[in-house]
């Protein structure tokens, strides 16, 4: 099994029928892994801890029905030893406490991951009102955006494998 996350979770074997196509894009696969690390485990996490990032990622994976990917992020979350409040985030049914910072982060994450077209300026203002700095808003958007990419690469590869 491949060492990179998307190929592993799509069930692609390096020696299988899709191995050659993926070998031709080995640079892209390596860069994809690097973006995962930058979005989930940055050296400077700003106001979004590694545990919170992993918990949000598990939440978004679950919202997309990607249970194996959610398990990957739950493992990262456990590694990062998040607080109880951070761990709660991984459950899509949890919406946060009234009008707090986490509630704002969750509302934004659920919107951007599942209905990005409906995002408006007021959604950014809500994060600012909840106390997020502009750099943290960009970090949160990047995390969501990266996950949308990763989830679709896995979904696409899985379909390719099934029809190879």
């Amino acid at each position: 099994m491949s060492e990179n996350i998307v190929e592993r979770l799509a069930g692609i074997a390096p020696s299988g029928p899709l191995g050659a196509a993926l070998q031709g894009r080995a640079d892209v696969m390596a860069m994809t892994e690097a973006t995962h690390d930058a979005a989930l485990k940055p050296a400077d996490p700003g106001g979004l801890s590694h545990a919170l990032r992993a918990a949000l990622a598990a939440r978004v994976a679950r919202l997309n029905g990607e249970e194996a990917l959610a398990a990957h992020y739950l493992a990262l979350m456990a590694e990062a030893e998040g607080s109880e409040a951070e761990v709660a985030v991984a459950d899509p049914a949890f919406k946060g406490d009234d009008a707090g910072r986490i509630a704002a982060i969750l509302a934004f994450t659920d919107l951007v991951s599942m209905r990005p077209r409906d995002t408006v300026a007021a959604d950014i203002e809500a994060l600012q009102a909840a106390g997020l700095s502009d750099p943290d808003i960009v970090r949160l958007a990047e995390l969501n955006a990266f996950l949308a990419y990763q989830i679709r690469v896995i979904a696409g590869l899985r379909l390719m494998r099934a029809s190879a």
């Binding site: 899709l18 196509a21 993926l22 031709g24 894009r25 892209v28 951007v112 990005p116 958007a141 969501n144 955006a145 990266f146 949308a148 990419y149 990763q150 989830i151 679709r152 690469v153 696409g156 590869l157 390719m160």
Partner: peptide, 15 residues
């Protein structure tokens, strides 16, 4: 594979 990557990449860029 390239189509999967380009469409997925815009899931990122659009967001």
């Amino acid at each position: 594979l390239d189509l999967i990557l380009s469409a997925a990449l815009f899931g990122w860029a659009n967001r």
